[in-house]
């Protein structure tokens, strides 16, 4: 089980957290032509899926209830940084 060093609570078991996917900015809707739709649906359905460190959002639901930005390696699960959502240094 992962150990996540929550910036608010200290090191906690991974099961206290829920994963909510890669960090993706919400696009501003630009209209309804095909390109605008495609952009929105990329936001809905596509995400980077490479093997390596990726920026993700996690939620410490069974703890401080804060959303966190976590950089994690998708093969080793090693976590290189944890910070409050939107405050990544």
């Amino acid at each position: 089980m992962l150990l996540i060093e929550c910036p608010h609570c200290g090191p906690r078991n991974g099961t206290e957290f829920t994963y909510s996917g890669k960090i993706q900015p919400r696009p501003v809707m630009k209209g309804s032509d095909f390109e605008a739709r495609a952009e929105w649906r990329r936001y809905l359905y596509e995400e980077d899926n490479f093997a390596g460190f990726a920026k993700e959002r996690w939620f410490h639901g069974n703890g401080c209830r804060k959303f966190l930005d976590i950089e994690r390696h998708s093969v080793t699960n090693e976590i290189s940084s944890v910070s409050p959502a939107g405050e990544a240094s």
Partner: peptide
């Protein structure tokens, strides 16, 4: 598993 990963190590949970 509850999060994306290429790990095949498995978990106790």
């Amino acid at each position: 598993d509850p999060f994306a990963s290429y790990s095949t190590r498995g978990s106790l949970e």
